[in-house]
Design a protein around this nucleic acid. Structure first.
Lengths: 346, 346
DNA sequence: CTGAAAGCGCTTACAG
DNA sequence: CTGAAAGCGCTTACAG
């Protein structure tokens, strides 16, 4: 008992296969009546079209791949969700691949996508995945880089303006609490967000005529654990009060926890700002100041850009950088302070 | 310029198409030499097999769908990640669908899966999606229910033992702090985890000869916001000290925040336990006690079960219930208390 | 307005 | 050991 095909419908109605196909697709010239009758019997026998067959015949597919480094990071799960919704509207099905920052897995994903004749893909690549991009180019599969970019790859990408992100956060700390040193807890090495947020931090420091003391900078932190460890070290080595710019909210969450364990009060002993505005940020204790990333817009822009590439349209802006937005909460402000407008007062 | 096909290889080598196909697939009888030569030229011209074509010819597909209610919930993104890894090992590609608890979207996803001739699917269905399951049955598509179950659907499912989850958490609170009332902040209505965790709560209360006071029970809470609101109400209506069983860690995170704003100390004024053990739990302030769900195991079991169904194997255990594990942290224990072993002391 | 023919890229019996 | 033929389910010119 296989699923019914258009052939079954044709037989049943004494029509030809092409006629049924046209009726179902609304193409060609058919009498209203035939069309209606075909739809009726299709419904009746529970016909479901076979996408694969249609796609193979048309030599094009309505699938796009999304290759993500780590889906368990809230940033990516949000983005994936928005991408899926956006691409779904355009009639495309989303294929998910987790690369775990592993170039081999990436290459594997990309190969599968070519194998499946996918229309295109959206990826956040790990820095050392040299092979994937040439491969995609060779097979003429359109792709959009997401969240990270590479010096060698000019087009196409959608990223936050990470330099501004680092700059805004740091400058806020410098202005708000000018007497304090500002530490930096940086993200994983070798990806553009880390580098660029750090550049923003450095620029803000320079502009304020502060020296960037490498003892105050923690590099290569991946998540809450590393943030926590950085916090323990900071509590030990840096005399309070100080301020901290954390490259992600999760790093900040770990850092916050370490300060709590060391009996340092936030923001009294240490002010802190993260990046992303994860859902948890405003519920943290104290509520975390952060630079919100336009996740949804990023997802929409990249989905949209990919669709344009797939349809061979001209891309007006092949390199999209979207601004973040500083949100000041308890972790970097004092109730009475004037220079600072707290979130709920806006 | 299209991608090369086996026909291109055949022409180039003066072989027939079937021969090339057999060489590439390692099937049939071929001389070692031909086989090797075919592989060589395939490599040379950058041949990538067309999965779709192969699948359509074989009338079977190597894709499975995962239909998830809300990917932005950490529980699901973790699980999806593990499922994808597990199914990938078996050579299956994962198709992602977000249903947002919307029965129409679910039905849509399921239709697409049938359209794509998917081998099967794993789903967490919303309670009122009456149509999806009969549809899947009609089209003989194997499916595994994940995380939630339904009275009408006997097989196949993989869920946590949610009654035990609610029971263990509540009993821990009752034993640890017997003098306090125990509140319950329950999850969304109409899904089995909510109902069952509540049943566990009730049973623990009854066993301890406590009455279940409906003024102490908050229903239909979805996430941090609802948890927060429940916390505000509790702080107002219930005299401290009290204990709280929250149906999820995210609800607990919101609740915790509300207590903080109302100057109630945890666990001194309010002890609290959540469910899931999200990554953030042990970094919360105070660190959140919780019943950890075996996410990875659940993902593996459901992927494995689906693969067996797809391959027509006998399923030895069609209804898998996996135990959670109580993890006691700061939010429900006191440094000096004897009845309680804190996590880092194990 | 309807249908006979060819083909998308591949695989699977079946002959030789 | 190799190849000619048929077919998976569908669509797309092209005839009538």
């Amino acid at each position: 008992m296989k699923n019914p095909t258009i052939r079954d419908i044709a037989k049943r109605m004494n029509l030809s296969v092409p006629t049924v196909s046209k009726a179902l697709n609304g193409s060609g010239n058919l009498s209203q009546e035939t069309r209606a009758r075909v739809h009726a019997t299709a419904e009746e026998i529970g016909y479901v079209p076979n996408f694969m067959a249609a796609q193979i015949r048309r030599s094009q597919s309505r699938m796009v791949g999304i290759v993500v480094s780590d889906l368990s990071q809230p940033f990516f799960s949000h983005v994936l969700q928005a991408c899926e919704a956006e691409l779904g509207k355009a009639g495309y099905q989303t294929l998910l691949f987790n690369s775990f920052e592993n170039p081999e897995k990436e290459m594997n994903a990309v190969k599968q996508l070519v194998s499946l004749n996918a229309a295109g893909c959206i990826m956040d690549l790990s820095q050392n995945s040299k092979d994937s991009i040439p491969f995609l180019r060779k097979h003429r599969m359109p792709f959009v880089l997401f969240g990270r970019r590479f010096s060698e790859v000019e087009d196409y990408y959608v990223v936050p303006d990470n330099r501004a992100v680092g700059y805004d956060a740091t400058r806020h700390l410098l202005e708000c609490l000018p007497e304090r040193p500002v530490l930096c807890v940086n993200g994983p090495n070798g990806i553009s967000p880390t580098t660029e947020r750090y550049e923003g931090y450095v620029r803000a420091m320079r502009e304020a005529r502060r020296e960037v003391d490498q003892r105050f900078v923690f590099h290569n932190c991946f998540g809450m654990d590393d943030g926590y460890n950085a916090g323990l070290m900071a509590a030990e080595r840096v005399p309070a009060p100080f301020s901290v710019f954390c490259s992600t909210d999760r790093i900040a969450a770990g850092f916050l926890r370490a300060l709590y364990e060391r009996n340092l009060r936030v923001p009294d002993d240490a002010a802190i700002v993260g990046v992303d505005d994860i859902a948890e940020a405003r519920f943290m204790i104290p509520a975390l100041s952060t630079v919100a990333l336009p996740k949804k817009q990023m997802a929409e822009e990249s989905a949209c850009m990919l669709m344009e590439l797939v349809n061979g349209k001209q891309i007006d802006n092949p390199r999209i950088q979207l601004p973040g937005k500083l949100i000041i909460r308890e972790s970097s402000s004092f109730p009475g302070s004037i220079s600072v407008m707290r979130e709920h007062e806006k």
